[in-house]
Simulated assay, not measured.
Amino acid sequence: MRIAFYGSSLVSAYWNGAATYYRGLLRALAARGYQMTFYEPDVYDRQKHRDIEPPDWCRVVVYEGTVAALKRVAAASAEAEIVIKASGVGFEDDLLLEEVMSAARPAALKIFWDVDAPATLQELRASPDHPLRRALSSLDLVLTYGGGDPVVRSYRALGARRCVPIYNAVDPQTHHRVAEDSRFAADLAFLGNRLPDREARVEAFFLAPAAQLGNRRFLLGGAGWRDKPLPANVAYVGHVPTADHNAFNATPRAVLNISRDSMAENGFSPATRVFEAAGAGACLITDAWEGIELFLKPGEEVLVARDGRDVAELMRTLTAEVAREIGERAFQRVLGEHTYAHRAAEVDRIFRERSRRVEAAE
């Protein structure tokens, strides 16, 4: 089956946290025989910061950030059996949804794939006349980056026919163990772009513990932090390309996951970094959120911190040996249960169930 996928970017992770998710899932779906075209706009300088070239398992079409170009690529959805519009494409999202779904053939499976469900739902609740809210009942399916039952219930209440969370995972071909790299030597490292709904949590969970533990080395990676006042023991390395993520995760004694406000409040929303870190064998410390135990076992496969004081206490007591043991258990867990091959099998089952229903109706 042919898939037309309209998303932010497959070839650039620059200001694009969904890139790893897209790559892992689409590569795994390609291995199952799907033929895919990914349509992405040339916006936010992403094409200037590509970290991969178009892969052989997916055709990539980059279009100009103009309405005319958008309409041209949207018309191509008529060629596919499965049409997917993701959230957060970054250029005229509402118009893109309308154009893509209008052009899709009547029998096509029409999907909205939400890679930031808590934020999207907050926007929909605040705007009863939102274009996506109006469109939900005409779509076959909503797939989400995560969110569990709270997100499913919310989407159904807003009119979605069906909503299924497809959690992110690890792609062992991309994120795996590597040798340590002195550039990323630290006791605790955090990788994440500077965003308004995460900055206060970064201050509480990362910068405050760093200020308390002057004898420990902290490492901060991600775009946007250059003008942020940092404690003297925090080294800032800027944007970290995908090719360096494994070394960034494998080198420090521990790495930290900090959820954005909306995802922490909703729960059931493990960040991509959780699986990337575990796939590299890292010892992961995460902020507390509901549902973590569905993915990693607290205290054995992941360390959970309720606040910055917990982070500081964990770093005071965490030995290199214990960190290695936690990282090893997490590594085994994600390879056994949380790869994109596992997620693609679930998506494939959903697609084929729907196709059988359409064939039966005909």
Rank of each mutant, 00 (worst) to 15 (best):
residue 222 G to S: 08
residue 218 F to A: 05
residue 189 A to C: 03
residue 179 A to W: 00
residue 198 R to C: 02
residue 203 E to D: 12
residue 210 A to T: 06
residue 242 T to A: 14
residue 273 R to N: 07
residue 210 A to G: 02
residue 175 H to R: 09
residue 196 P to G: 06
residue 184 F to G: 03
residue 193 N to Y: 10
residue 253 R to C: 10
residue 269 S to R: 08
residue 282 A to R: 03
residue 190 F to V: 07
residue 168 N to Y: 13
residue 283 C to T: 00
residue 169 A to R: 12
residue 235 A to R: 15
residue 196 P to W: 14
residue 215 N to Y: 09
residue 206 F to G: 09
residue 207 L to W: 06
residue 265 E to L: 15
residue 190 F to L: 11
residue 187 D to W: 00
residue 234 V to S: 04
residue 233 N to Y: 02
residue 284 L to T: 00
residue 198 R to W: 10
residue 276 E to P: 05
residue 192 G to M: 01
residue 289 W to F: 15
residue 210 A to D: 02
residue 235 A to W: 00
residue 210 A to M: 06
residue 183 R to C: 00
residue 246 N to D: 07
residue 197 D to M: 11
residue 241 P to L: 03
residue 168 N to F: 12
residue 260 R to C: 01
residue 168 N to I: 05
residue 242 T to D: 08
residue 219 L to H: 06
residue 228 K to I: 05
residue 197 D to L: 14
residue 280 A to R: 01
residue 189 A to K: 03
residue 213 L to I: 12
residue 285 I to R: 04
residue 287 D to N: 08
residue 170 V to H: 07
residue 189 A to F: 08
residue 272 T to P: 00
residue 227 D to M: 10
residue 210 A to R: 03
residue 255 V to N: 01
residue 230 L to M: 13
residue 207 L to A: 09
residue 172 P to M: 02
residue 263 M to P: 00
residue 269 S to V: 02
residue 173 Q to L: 15
residue 245 H to Q: 01
residue 283 C to Y: 05
residue 230 L to H: 09
residue 284 L to W: 04
residue 290 E to Y: 01
residue 281 G to I: 02
residue 283 C to E: 04
residue 205 F to Y: 15
